[in-house]
C-alpha cells in the first residue's frame, strides 16, 4: 500500500512540476501557479509517507495557502496579457536542456555510486508536533529566534519596497 501511494504521489509531483515549467496548452502564469499548488500538495503527501506529519501540515498551510495566494495576487496585479505572444528561442532552449541534462546525469551518477542503504522501516523517526517542538525549543532555540527577526526584517522591507516612491 505504501509503495503504491509513493508511486502515485511521486508521479503526481513530477507531472505537475513539469506542467508548472512547460505547459503545452497555455503559457499563462496563472496555470503555472495552479499546478504549483498541486505539486506542493502532492509533496505534502510524500512528507506524510515519510512520517513528517507536522511538516506536511506546514507545507500545506504555508506554501499552498499563504505563498501561493501571494503569487496569485501578484500575477493578477500585473496584467501579463502580452506574455503569450513571444516566440520561443530554440537555440537557448536547447542549450538550457543540455546543461540541465548534464546536471541530472551528475546527480543520478552520485545517487547510483553512493548506494544508500536505508531500509524503509529501520529507525522509525516520527516527525509529529511534540518531538519537533521539543527539538525546536531546545537545541534550535537561537536559530528559531533569529528566524523571527528575519521575518520582521522581511516585512519591513516589503512595506518599504511597496511604497509608491522609492527614495
Amino acid at each position: 500500500m505504501e509503495t503504491f501511494l509513493f508511486y502515485i504521489f511521486a508521479a503526481l509531483t513530477l507531472l505537475c512540476g513539469l506542467l508548472v515549467v512547460a505547459n503545452p496548452l497555455s503559457r499563462n502564469p496563472v496555470n503555472s501557479a495552479m499546478f504549483l499548488v498541486l505539486t506542493i500538495a502532492s509533496l505534502a503527501g510524500l512528507f506524510v509517507l515519510l512520517h513528517a506529519f507536522f511538516l506536511a501540515a506546514v507545507q500545506l498551510l504555508v506554501y499552498a495557502g499563504a505563498v501561493m495566494v501571494l503569487f496569485l495576487f501578484v500575477i493578477m496585479l500585473l496584467d501579463l496579457k502580452e506574455e503569450e505572444r513571444r516566440k520561443i528561442k530554440w537555440l537557448g532552449l536547447a542549450a538550457g536542456l543540455v546543461s540541465v541534462a548534464a546536471i541530472v546525469l551528475i546527480g543520478a551518477r552520485s545517487i547510483y555510486a553512493s548506494q544508500p542503504t536505508g531500509v524503509a522501516s529501520a529507525p522509525g523517526v516520527e516527525g509529529g508536533t511534540v518531538p519537533l517542538g521539543k527539538l525546536l525549543f531546545t537545541a534550535y532555540l537561537l536559530p528559531f529566534e533569529i528566524v523571527s527577526v528575519l521575518l520582521l526584517v522581511a516585512m519591513v522591507g516589503v512595506v518599504l519596497l511597496s511604497k509608491k516612491e522609492l527614495k
Partner: peptide, 22 residues
C-alpha cells in the same frame, strides 16, 4: 531525516519553509 533516524533534517526543512516565505 527519516532514513538516518535524526529529526534535525526536519527542523532544517521547517527553517527553509520559513525563510522561503520571507
Amino acid at each position: 531525516s527519516r532514513f538516518n533516524g535524526h529529526l534535525d533534517g526536519q527542523v532544517m526543512v521547517f527553517f527553509i519553509i520559513t525563510v522561503a516565505a520571507a
